[in-house]
Write a protein that binds this DNA or RNA. Structure first.
Lengths: 101, 101
DNA sequence: GCCTTAGTTCCATCAAACTCGAATTAATGG
DNA sequence: CCATTAATTCGAGTTTGATGGAACTAAGGC
């Protein structure tokens, strides 16, 4: 799968990030990624159809929250914590803390 | 105008807060309220129709971000910074910092 | 080459949400 | 009481976004 496009940290847009995080399914994905470090899409689908999950990962990618890297036949996803921190200091960590509590 | 209902800090829901902040108009309102302390709805309408502005204030109120108090014939709006901080520490301040930068 | 696996893309459907005009309510002033 | 001002509520139109089935693509294994 050809490398998918991910925005640079300088291109992250606050409203897009907030919108991406305002959905329950996506917030759950982000939470799990934060807890487990990395995971395939399938590991986080929660029993939902692939097309739905793929849509949510796309939104997360385009907001800059998640990086997806092809790894053999699966795709590995990681949170872009450091870049988010650089661009919007404290934001993602505050959301993660809020989602935990 | 009978006192409008505002949720308690314990009732704030993260996804609702993030959704409220993910709209450009509302983010602008929140930014201005943070800068100016308080303002009437009309002072923040940006030339938009009243019904539109009223809608956005409602979303902000229901998320817990804004408190609206009748004050004579106008309504005074303030950010509920302390309560947000109590419920979701660091979140609103990180968003405000990001919106400024 | 063929099959399987993992995701994406396309498409349609349906619900949520933004916008805004018009009617309404609430408080004040004359 | 009437007019004015400020904002809410109602209703309609339009857009955005979520969901999920079907077809497609890329990588690996036999």
């Amino acid at each position: 799968m050809a490398a998918m496009k991910h925005p640079e940290a300088s291109e992250f847009r606050l409203e897009k990030v907030l919108h991406a995080l305002s959905d329950g399914v996506r917030l759950g994905i982000v939470r799990q990624l934060a807890a487990e470090g990395e995971a395939s899409c399938a590991a986080l689908d929660g029993g939902r159809p692939k097309s739905t999950v793929s849509h949510h990962f796309r939104v997360l990618r385009e907001a800059g929250l998640v990086r997806t890297t092809p790894f053999g036949v699966t795709h590995m996803n990681t949170l872009r914590r450091a870049e988010m921190e650089e661009r919007f200091p404290g934001l993602l960590e505050a959301v993660l803390a809020a989602a935990r509590g």
